[in-house]
Design a protein around this nucleic acid. Sequence first.
DNA 1: AGTAACTGTTACTTCAAGTCACATACCGTC
DNA 2: GACGGTATGTGACTTGAAGTAACAGTTACT
Lengths: 254, 254
Amino acid sequence: MNGSVKAVTGTDARRERWDGHRADRRREFVEAALRVLESGGTDLPMEAVAAQAGVTKPVLYRYFADKAALVDALAERGSQILLSRLMPAINSDGPALARIRAAVGAYFAVIDEHPDLYRLLARRPGTDGAQASTERDKELISTTLTAVISDALCRFGLGSGGAEPWAHGVTGLVHSTGEWWLRRRSMSRTRVVEYVTALIWSAFTGILREGGIVLGPQDPVPACRVPAAGRPAGTGSPPALDPAAGPIPGGGTG
Amino acid sequence: MNGSVKAVTGTDARRERWDGHRADRRREFVEAALRVLESGGTDLPMEAVAAQAGVTKPVLYRYFADKAALVDALAERGSQILLSRLMPAINSDGPALARIRAAVGAYFAVIDEHPDLYRLLARRPGTDGAQASTERDKELISTTLTAVISDALCRFGLGSGGAEPWAHGVTGLVHSTGEWWLRRRSMSRTRVVEYVTALIWSAFTGILREGGIVLGPQDPVPACRVPAAGRPAGTGSPPALDPAAGPIPGGGTG
DNA sequence: AGTAACTGTTACTTCAAGTCACATACCGTC
DNA sequence: GACGGTATGTGACTTGAAGTAACAGTTACT
């Protein structure tokens, strides 16, 4: 009889049996790596990861070409964790300020829960240098933020040329403050969050104000529909801040 | 006769002969390392540095305990280069906006000239982790900025409690945008500088505005006298941005 | 039974960091 | 002029982690 898979699909079922299994296995190792990070310290020896997963190095190397690949996977995991907390906050309804505060709060909550992962990804060991997947995680976040900012600017009828640099800027702002806070913890989390929120809020409203728009803390902004991934940024010019050096309306004395 | 040093100072002159020589020698190696960075790539093998200096490893190791120490020295050098361009810009006279622009411009000019050094210091290899001189350079810059911001806030009669987180935030803002720009160079330098300046300017004026002070692009701020090193930040609370909402919604506990 | 895909192991190579043992040069002291 | 303290330098080593090679067992489809 031929209930045999081969007869039905035309391929040897011994091949397909394992499809998708790789992904599971990789996840296992990522979990193991996370456990090593939690217990261990700042570095992440491959041997320890393998041991934590209950096997030896060569097995690990069957699923990750090298250490950079593992760290990459960790980065992706980290980004997922972060974005899954960040996006609901950013996309929540409510006034803009509350959303910024929620997003910043979520960010600090995440790094508070996963300090080791954060530190690992912050300064990549293993990712030696330039080309190979340079910081796909931060890039992913910045890209997402680019879309959000770009969207917001468009809604106010402003050029979105600044979206990309500003997204990277804000990402770095939060990131650096986060690193500093983790290192020192010289103030409560709610307090840092409040300070960071104030800074971003000021920056945001200030940019709008340059475009002639005044936004109050309670004013709503239509929720962003985040597009699939960041468009490379639209067009527009940097605001001509300095009335002496160019056009643009009545100096910031609003 | 005894023109001998020992007779005069009480110590063997064979000891003092070398005082201060170490510093010179270390400088030599730092130069060599810079040359390696320029020609080579992203990594910095000790052997290459030694070779570049015309000697072998053990000699290098007589002046630097380990690689981290060398990188530290490079970081210090980098900070010096950066601060020597940054501080005149920040402390120049002229309106606040112009000074911010000059400072941001100086920053980008420096990283444009020393991209490899910048990249090395951005993600420290060798500095394994926690304790040993964690990023003395960025810390130094942030500390200096803390002083500047703190000073500025005081001049406007505002609490300086936010100076430290904001300093780290702004440092990170510029840093991240710089990294992104170096990687991509998708816009001209003057353009990024303008965008970053706009963001910082907005943040700055916004913070002042929360304190009831309106600052225009042309308005001067008394030049900062920068104290020797950053005071640990003063006192004050985060601005209560949201008159309606009391405590924090997002993120959970502090 | 034969075999394609996995499972896993021990033992190796490689490479850079860092150390050891040893040899030489300068120059002030005696 | 011999002595010796501080430097100069080298080649050969050790160590540790990344990554590889060769080999052996298991499962389930053909």
